[in-house]
């Protein structure tokens, strides 16, 4: 397949260079690492909020750098955890004296590298306090082949948002961690694929799907899903994903929710809106009130065609934090 790549080995480095070139007034690169931070990091007296993981999910993670969301984001190789030494430098660079919260997606490599990074950063600076939350919103996984727990996927965006807003309003590390954990406990996501994705190193699809097949319950790395079925209409897909998420999140009767219909990288926005149409109908039919429904590419899987549906049950505080202003390349909430 044709790709706009110069050299697979330079893929991440060149992408990061391009990101900084696109937003030189907002983000900068930590020297000799694959970590990016907001331009004015560390922000004195504010809890730092950092994230990171493999590349290939853009705009995740660096797209959410900026006031009201992330202070730092580390990029590993495609679909590969960043290493602990790089994460350690990122933690240190985002420490403004109030500690740092690491928002980690539930993959063994990510979790272990972040934990090791916190230890390494602590050896350099005994006063540095690091807290961690692990996002595991993928409702497809419990019944899948995976046994290392539910994966972290697009619900992570909400976690970034509430943690970033809490840090910005001056919450201490415990409180920032608390609101992030609260969001994790109330969010669920399920994804599907129309096609596999092509990693730059391999150059071919990571799994094969026939023309008339789709894969339900996929992750964001071209892992196989939970179920392969015959192709279905946008409405049926929307119903399948939404039902699965609602069954897991189980919002209270008449609850307010926030949603994301997320594109996997290769699906046009028009199709995502078509899916969103049915998602919102279903939520309304069930008596839920969508306070905010986002549609777009928030956490992609390279060039995979498909989408995911995320539902977050809201409480007053979470809503307030989602509504707080944020200025990042990939997500803006006006004051």
């Amino acid at each position: 397949m044709r790709k706009l790549i110069n050299d697979p080995d330079e893929y991440v480095d060149e992408m990061l260079q391009g990101m900084v070139a696109a937003y030189p007034d907002r983000i900068r690169r930590l020297e000799d690492t694959e970590g990016l931070v907001r331009l004015d990091a560390p922000v004195e007296g504010k809890v730092g909020v950092v994230s990171g993981g493999g590349s290939g999910h853009e705009p995740t993670h660096a797209g959410y750098l900026g006031p009201g969301m992330l202070d730092g984001a580390a990029a590993g190789e495609v679909f590969t955890s960043p290493t602990a030494d790089q994460l350690s430098e990122l933690l240190t660079a985002c420490e403004g004296g109030a500690g740092v919260l690491a928002v980690v997606k539930n993959y063994e490599g990510d979790v272990m590298n972040f934990e090791t990074a916190a230890e390494m950063a602590g050896m350099e600076n005994e006063d540095l306090e690091v807290a961690q939350v692990v996002v595991n919103d993928d409702v497809a996984v419990e019944d899948s082949l995976y046994t290392s727990g539910r994966r972290g996927v697009c619900g992570t965006i909400f976690v970034h948002k509430v943690a970033g807003a809490a840090a910005r309003r001056g919450d201490d590390l415990d409180d920032v961690q608390r609101v992030a954990q609260n969001a994790i406990e109330n969010v669920g996501t399920m994804g599907m694929a129309l096609t596999s994705c092509v990693t730059p190193a391999k150059g071919e699809p990571t799994f094969d799907l026939d023309e008339d097949e789709i894969e339900l319950g996929i992750g964001i790395h071209g892992e196989p899903g939970t179920e392969r079925t015959e192709a279905m209409s946008a409405d049926r897909v929307a119903e399948h994903l939404t039902e699965a998420v609602l069954e897991d999140v189980d919002p209270a009767e008449g609850a307010e929710v926030a949603t994301i219909v997320n594109g996997m990288g290769g699906t046009p926005l028009s199709e995502l809106f078509i899916v969103n149409r049915r998602v919102q109908e279903l939520l309304a039919d069930r008596g839920f009130d969508t306070w905010n429904g986002r549609v777009g590419e928030y956490m992609t899987s390279l060039d995979m065609c498909g989408c995911s549906v995320t539902v977050l049950e809201l409480d007053e505080e979470t809503k307030e934090l989602l509504a707080a202003p944020a200025e990042t390349p990939a997500l803006t909430v006006a004051d």
């Binding site: 290493t83 063994e108 272990m112 090791t116 390494m120």
Partner: peptide, 11 residues
């Protein structure tokens, strides 16, 4: 830690 990567690096 810096050269192995993945989960084996931290382990």
């Amino acid at each position: 830690v810096s050269a192995v990567g993945g989960a084996s690096g931290p382990l």
